[in-house]
Design a binder for these strands. Structure first.
Lengths: 337, 337
DNA sequence: CTGAAAGCGCTTACAG
DNA sequence: CTGAAAGCGCTTACAG
């Protein structure tokens, strides 16, 4: 193992000189001394031990990202991760990823190692589903500065505005002249977005004096993938079928498209207008579906910023933030006026 | 900040007693002493400082995962991450994620912080595209124990057997009686899998005395998503169209399905058999496409194991591993015998 | 059965 | 302009 001590020996200066030259006090030393030290460090492949530094500074130089093992949409996940990471790089912080099942946390004895040891300056907590009470308790007990991602807490949380997005999507289709607008969701799940998007849609419909039409799984249940095309076909075949549909996610839109185009000979957007939610313009199948884009990158980035803030103020509470979603237009909507 | 010292004070014992009771020497102490210490630690919310421990042990207790910023399939990414993580938990290791663009590494002066500082015991390197020579150089220079994921290096690497999977997929369709089997890829990219899967297919075709038919983008180029349905339609309309197609990924299969089913009124598998590559059975659209499954979880898990091995033997070289892919059957293939 | 002391690798006042 | 020394929070041989 190469230590600063060894660099000092090789370059014939003291340990503290090495530290200062390689740190932010290089300007205090003669060019000659600096050169000697830098050359020796390079030759030996010296890398300062981050633990030693952390001990001195009292800061670990890392934050932890806590993930549930419950299913979550992975592309979302990656973009958020990148947003977090980019912000951390700016602050010279490392990113520690941890992950454990909700179930483990209901067990009284279980304390995950990221909480048990002091190895991060703060925590980003990304639980798409419900947050186990015991987790909140553990974190409060240990007084770890934390920010909750995708959570509806009043403080120290950040999430996208799912309700507002439901409204925006609906009003967009209303403006195109649609009246029979449905909302479809084939997956259940305890996350608030499942209800919020739907409620935003229903709210906008009622505002326009129209009756909401909800298609698909109710909260908690979920359609098997293999049944989704068939289920879509059923409601698409009815004579008073909607002229436009808002889908919970791209994965909801796909079987609907398959049923409409493949089985019933319909065209999009000629016979059916579509708007979906996703993390970017949903065009996996070659057809660009107009999308309410979840700002995953910004979510991650802002969460990281909030956490840095909290770490600086040793855990002081911050007001929660709600990020607006934007509609990105594809080729899946048509005016029927 | 709560230190072991404070726990010692509160419980009226010495610092070293606290350390030993909370460590793995608890059995050496009287039950009464143990209780006192544990209670005090709990009351104060004591968490041992991992840096201090790391300094003593000479091991950081963490490994680093290096990611390229170049596009990669995100769901793959998540499963691999989980495989890595599960294995690390078993060894009580933390996971540090880092990420930087290939371009940055061509810059002579740039050394990413995960390499510049000594903050991990070893590195998992996941570059789907080409590995910048400078990165290899940096890692060798610093003598960091490393394992390369998705790389064709002879040592210290792990990857799935893309060539073999191409063969398996083709032989499966041959056995079902297909002769006009095509291979389709709409994306380019420098990764070896692009060529290996195709070459495996071509190899199996030639073995069977048949001429390979490659459809779509050649290496390096890539079809825009919006053109993929149209492109698919073109080759599907020809009179001698293939009866079966192997696609590079699910994202290649989707527009083909859309063109076949939606535009040409074909059925799968009646009029066209499909096999694809993906990280799990590809049924996004409600139709289960038979899939050569990339063992992402095992890839991550095994890579982590290899790295742990290397860390123990202070970086000694390990032979590379190649993981076989399995065919998971959906409803997209039909015998035509 | 418990405690005093050394030391892991650094940084930073302080002395010269 | 450079160096000796203290100390960050732990663990572990060693003494008692």
């Amino acid at each position: 193992m190469v230590t600063a001590e060894k660099v000092a020996q090789l370059s014939g200066v003291s340990l503290s000189t090495v530290s200062q030259v390689l740190g932010d006090r290089a300007h205090l030393f003669r060019a000659e001394t600096r050169e000697k030290v830098v050359r020796a460090a390079q030759k030996l492949g010296y890398r300062p031990n981050s633990s030693a530094r952390a001990m001195r500074s009292g800061r670990l130089g890392a934050i932890g990202l806590l993930l549930s093992t419950e299913e979550h949409r992975s592309s979302l996940f990656e973009k958020m991760l990148v947003g977090i990471y980019d912000e951390l790089v700016r602050q010279n912080l490392r990113l520690n990823v941890a992950r454990f099942p909700d179930k483990a946390l209901t067990d009284e004895g279980f304390v995950p190692q990221i909480l048990r040891e002091w190895s991060c300056d703060g925590l980003l907590i990304n639980y798409n589903a419900l947050i186990p009470p015991r987790m909140v308790e553990l974190i409060q007990n240990y007084k770890i500065p934390s920010v909750w991602i995708n959570s509806q807490r009043d403080t120290d949380a950040i999430r996208p505005d799912d309700f507002g997005a439901g409204v925006i999507a609906t009003e967009y289709l209303l403006k195109l002249g649609h009246r029979r607008i449905a909302y479809a969701s084939y997956s259940g799940g305890g996350h608030y977005s499942t209800t919020d998007r739907r409620d935003g849609y229903a709210h906008a419909m009622k505002q326009a004096g129209l009756a909401p039409q909800i298609i698909g799984a109710q909260t908690g249940s979920s359609f098997e993938r293999s049944q989704r095309i068939q289920a879509s076909r059923q409601w698409l075949e009815q004579s008073d079928r909607p002229t436009a549909v808002i889908t919970y996610a791209g994965s909801t839109a796909l079987p609907i498209i398959m049923a409409a185009i493949g089985e019933l000979g319909m065209r999009v957007p000629r016979d059916l207008s579509l708007v979906t939610f996703d993390d970017s313009l949903f065009d996996d199948c070659g057809l660009a579906v107009s999308t309410m884009v979840i700002p995953e990158y910004e979510l991650g980035q802002t969460a990281a910023r909030m956490l840095e803030q909290k770490i600086k103020t040793s855990g002081q509470s911050l007001p929660s933030q709600v990020l607006t979603m934007q509609l990105v237009q594809g080729n899946s909507c048509q005016s029927i006026i």
